[in-house]
Design a protein around this nucleic acid. Structure first.
Length: 560
RNA sequence: UCGGGGAUCGUCUAACGGCAGGACAGGGGACUUUGGAUCCUCUAAUCGUGGUUCGAAUCCACGUCCCCGAGCCA
């Protein structure tokens, strides 16, 4: 915690929990869960939920479960289960030995369904999907009772068992709760509990051909696990009465459902559908593309779970629909990386500098600090020679006002090196600057002048003969507009894709990074944070730009 | 139109009838061997109209606007 604002954090959910503890509603217990459906990859919005649920369990000395909501075999896959487990673990949430699946409860759910039938609270309905819709009524008009609503308990039991036995084709019948076809809450108009689906389930295989719906499975799964606070997103608010109705009808332990607003971020999209489309249509390179807000994308980009945790704490939890400025995420990432990333020097857009008065063939190894924020990170040696690469934008032939870097006749400091002064500019036939001839002051080794003279600027550099050639992938926001949906009518959110969200460059890096493992985090001084990509080979490192450093000069420039 | 939610600086979020606070973003400054980091500082908000009250973001009334809901998805 760098300051006090996050230490005493609270939110309306914790207030509810405090109240429940005070009144002894759950005997003082706190038990939460994260219930993903394994039909896609997790994104930063899920991270908010995981951090919330796990954070609450930890803060209150309670428990946290990971439970897959795997009730729809037509959409779910083992691949997603594996990926989600990996991602939740990466986030740091610990479910200990409580990894569960709604499918673990299929038999219990089935038995409970028979109980409801016996109580006259559920019936087998032969209406087709279209007919069910028709009978449901509309938002403003009540529905009508299904003609099958008053079947006898015996007939319902018989039919339901035959549904399970596989006697009927997909879609031919459903089991529905008998509630109220006139309820203004459509979820209570005899909701479907079971549908017939002759589909292979990733976990139960072909054991079942009827599958419970979300509404029928979720609350009961929470109940079985002894969940106290079932935290979900706002769109389930309308489902709460049904959640409670099932538990009450069954007469079993009832957790409390609490809804909060899902996370939205500027300059990106979060829905599974859209993410899927970006991947499938090749707008990005895959689910782990560093431009995506998926957990795998963020991880590959170099974002740490700690940065994500800080972010989720800063955005808070409430019921307002909101869209968080992605600048806050970037701030959290910088904040985190500033403390942990090793500093190195790398040049993204090289301009050659020759030190005319520096001995040819001489190499000096200069000491450089690995992380000024963390003395324990130590120091390293960087080679200094007559020929150097500097950043092209660190030289201006005619320096604008407030520009402190190199220009003809001006002296600057080479980081950890010497003061140098530009004495001549070499140009090609088209007048482009191709090389700078500079002198160095041997008295200024290490970066300070014995005579006490100052320079306005320190620039980074890499020794030409020692430079490692690497690939730098410079990422920018995926969309041009804060709100990707901000398009002229008839347009598509895809029209707002940023065509320059990825720029690949060849860069030069100091030799100390040779052999760095994928995932290694660095700060290229004065430029940005970078993360070694798994695409790296022993011959050629690949760096992903996680986030650029704040750039005061760009700001000054932008104003003129 | 029916039901369920929601509306506080540009953005996110506090306040539980008693000084509208914090963070990010933005402006200004200090410091600096990263124009980084850090520090200081400024700008900036209660959806509207009435009412209750010594006192209202908070309570009441009436409006307005936004989100969700008519899957055998979750």
């Amino acid at each position: 915690m760098t300051n006090g604002e996050t230490t005493s954090r609270t939110d309306f959910i914790r207030e509810i929990i405090d109240e429940d503890i005070r009144t002894g509603r759950f005997g003082g217990r706190v038990h939460t869960r994260f219930p993903p459906e394994p039909n896609g990859y997790l994104h930063i919005g899920h991270a908010k939920s995981v951090m919330l649920n796990y954070g609450i369990a930890k803060d209150y000395g309670g428990k946290f479960n990971l439970r897959f909501d795997d009730t729809n075999p037509t959409k779910e896959e083992q691949e997603y289960i594996d990926a989600i487990i990996e991602d939740v673990r990466w986030l740091g949430a610990d479910w200990e030995d409580r990894l569960f699946y709604a499918s673990d409860y299929f038999e219990q759910l089935y038995q409970w369904a028979e109980d409801l039938i016996r109580k006259g609270l559920a019936y087998v309905c032969d209406l087709s999907a279209d007919e069910v819709r028709e009978y449901r009524g509309t938002l403003t008009e009540p529905g009508r009772n299904s003609p099958y609503r008053d079947r006898s308990v015996e007939e319902n039991l018989d039919l339901f068992r035959r549904m399970r036995a596989g006697e009927f084709p997909d879609g031919s019948r459903t089991l529905r709760a008998k509630i109220d076809m006139a309820s203004p809450n459509l979820n209570l108009r005899d909701p479907v509990m079971y549908r017939i689906l002759h589909a292979e389930h990733p976990r139960t295989g072909n054991a079942w051909c009827i599958y419970p719906t979300y509404d029928w499975a979720h609350g009961q799964s929470d109940s079985i696990e002894g969940i106290t606070h079932s935290i979900c997103t706002l769109e389930f608010e309308d489902h709460r009465p049904l959640y409670e109705w099932f538990l009450q009808a069954l007469g079993i332990y009832a957790p409390r459902q609490i809804e909060f607003a899902r996370l939205n971020l500027t300059y990106t999209v979060m829905s599974k559908r859209r993410l899927l489309r970006l991947v499938n249509e090749g707008h990005v390179r895959g689910w782990d593309d560093p431009r995506l807000p998926t957990l795998r994308g963020l991880r590959r980009r170099g974002v740490t779970p700690e940065a994500l945790k800080d972010f989720t704490e800063r955005i808070g939890v409430a019921k307002n629909n909101s869209t968080v400025d992605i600048a806050l995420l970037e701030y959290c990432i910088r904040q985190d990386l500033n403390r942990r990333a090793l500093r190195v020097m790398g040049v993204l857009d090289p301009l050659k500098v020759t030190l005319v008065n520096y001995p040819e063939g001489q190499v000096e190894w200069l000491e450089a600090i690995n992380n000024p924020e963390d003395p324990s990170a130590g120091t390293r040696l960087v080679p200094f020679t007559r020929e150097l690469w500097i950043e092209r934008e660190d030289f201006r032939e005619v320096p604008p006002p407030k520009y402190y870097r190199l220009s003809p006749g001006r002296e600057v400091r080479l980081r950890y090196g010497y003061f140098i002064k530009c004495v001549d500019v070499v140009k090609d036939a088209d007048g482009n600057v191709v090389e700078l001839l500079c002198t160095y002051d041997p008295e200024t080794r290490g970066g300070s002048a014995p005579d006490g003279r100052k320079v306005k600027s320190t620039i980074h550099w890499v020794s030409v003969p020692h430079a490692l050639t690497a690939e730098a992938r410079l990422y920018d926001r995926l969309f041009l507009k804060e709100d990707p949906d901000d398009v002229p009518e008839g347009g598509s959110w895809l029209d707002n894709l940023n065509p320059n969200s990825l720029e690949v460059r060849t860069c030069y890096v100091e030799p100390s990074v040779a052999g760095a493992a994928p995932g290694s985090l660095y700060q290229f001084e004065r430029l940005a944070y970078f993360c070694v990509d798994p695409d790296s080979t022993p011959e050629r490192l690949v760096f992903n730009r996680t986030v650029a450093l704040k750039d005061e000069w760009a700001k000054i420039q932008g104003k003129t």
